[in-house]
Design a protein around this nucleic acid. Structure first.
Lengths: 137, 137
DNA sequence: AGAAATTTGTCCGTATGTATC
DNA sequence: AGATACATACGGACAAATTTC
């Protein structure tokens, strides 16, 4: 068979279909994936191509694979929806503690960038990062 | 030829040797890597094995590859050495601002975890992450 | 501009090694 | 021990992007 890969290569097309099955819930979290052999039959693709497709899903964290056992869908790390952040920058003066850490005088100008993480609109984490003003992003 | 991969598979051994060449400066940043064909000759390995070794280096960010052109070593993003962190946790009381963000009363106990990033022993970044006490890690 | 050569990308088939059941 | 399933490796073929002539 020739090897024309118009647009998307086969392994990506197969990966997309498998991804669909997982994200749609057809293969629930924690359940085993079909074996490589079964997939070669279903998609009429060589084992190498199937393995590449599986590798894509593994890199994306959708499945895990164990030697001799097989692949299984992962329990999604974020079943709760909308864990997003917003960021905000402002200038602050170094207090005694920060001044000591940075090795500068008290009152030196710092940049504080704050990001807030929410889980279902509830704030669960606030991160503040302090840098000297001269630092390149 | 048989395919015994005692300990490390061939593609990892080859990747390690190439990595050495890059990190030692034998192949300076920004210069082209040997072609896949040249590497198959040098290491007496199949092209597939060579390609896997190259993929390892690419995933590690040491090289870049372009279709039809070849691979080239990357300019290291951090020529400065020792960008490391230390972490430290302590309990704090929510001030007005944090209390407002978390939607709790002023004075509520929070956990502050602080990490300090240094570049050549100089502090360049201080990050503070605040969470509620009930949060799971 | 166009053809040829070079180089990486995809795919197949097969064989063997290694871990698990 | 045997069967099953994933891991590594080889060789060959063709596709696609780039460079060279």
């Amino acid at each position: 068979m020739p090897t024309p890969h118009y647009g998307q290569p086969r392994y990506r097309v197969i990966a997309a279909q498998l991804r669909n099955r997982i994200e749609s819930g057809a293969i629930p979290p924690g359940t085993p994936m079909p074996t490589e052999n079964a997939l070669t039959v279903e998609f009429r693709a060589s084992r190498g191509t199937i393995r590449r497709a599986i590798a894509v899903l593994r890199e994306d964290g959708l499945i895990g694979t164990q030697h001799g056992r097989g692949s299984h869908t992962n329990a999604m790390p974020n079943p709760k929806q909308t864990t997003l952040n917003v960021e905000e920058k402002r200038g602050v003066s170094a207090n005694a503690e920060l001044a000591s850490l940075f090795g500068v005088e008290i009152g030196t100008a710092l940049i504080e960038s704050q990001s807030v993480t929410r889980e279902d609109s509830r704030v669960i984490k606030v991160a503040r990062i302090y840098r000297l003003q001269d630092a390149e992003v």
